[in-house]
Amino acid sequence: MSAIAAINLSKTYKQLFKPPVEALHNVSFSINEGEMVGLIGPNGAGKSTLMRLLLGFLPSDSGEVTLFNEHPESLHARSQIGYQADTQFRAKNVTVKSFLLLHARLIGIERPEEHIEQLLKTFELFDAYKRPLASLSKGMRQKLELVLAFLGSPKLVFLDEPTAALDPPSVFVLRDFLAEKKKTGITVLFSSHHLTEVESICDRIIFISDGTVVDDSPMKNIGPGHLEQLFRKNLGMKGTMS
């Protein structure tokens, strides 16, 4: 069964007194259950817009999205997904504990404290369990977003620049965690600018440029260490691999 199916998705941002910006144009692809797919492309290519359309957070101008053959805003589909956004949230009067317990209860996790404790320890955030959210550093909030994304063991996880604010040890932790999760059959859509991470984690690449899918290949066809070449080729850039 396909975990994500996008058919002819288009999105144009209309702005007052400015020309409209076409973020996506007729994007179509399908991701099967158990796949770990890397979404790569230059800045402003439309990766985050695509993620928001897939999650139903942003209405598309045309096209269709299904998650597990259901509408992305259906509660049943939503109960199976996790999302780590590229922007971090802020909240007053909330501690890490109360925030995660709220989400665990809303999801309906039995014995939520144990599950949360385990995830916090995995992402080395357990010391901040009782701290207010407002006091967390940027990197800690990124880890909290990751904990939230994996809370309740979702079947499909969207990760938008998950390592952007993480230090190298935390990146290694995330990489190992995803490798472990891969064995459980989880589906991951992973957007990143760090090509080595994408190479090490993903088994398929979707390359987006100027709002269109310009490449969709299995990682084994690209070959280890050749992602940079693919990137350069798709953008018409000269030069050789570093």
Binding site: L55, F57, E73, L75, R78, S79, I81, G82, Y83, A85, T87, Q88, F89, R90, A91, H103, L106, I107, G108, L148, G152, P154
Partner: peptide, 14 residues
């Protein structure tokens, strides 16, 4: 603006 709504709507809340 704060992103709080996004965290709530991602799962189990309409």
């Amino acid at each position: 603006t704060s992103g709080w709504l996004r965290t709530l709507l991602i799962r189990s809340i309409t």
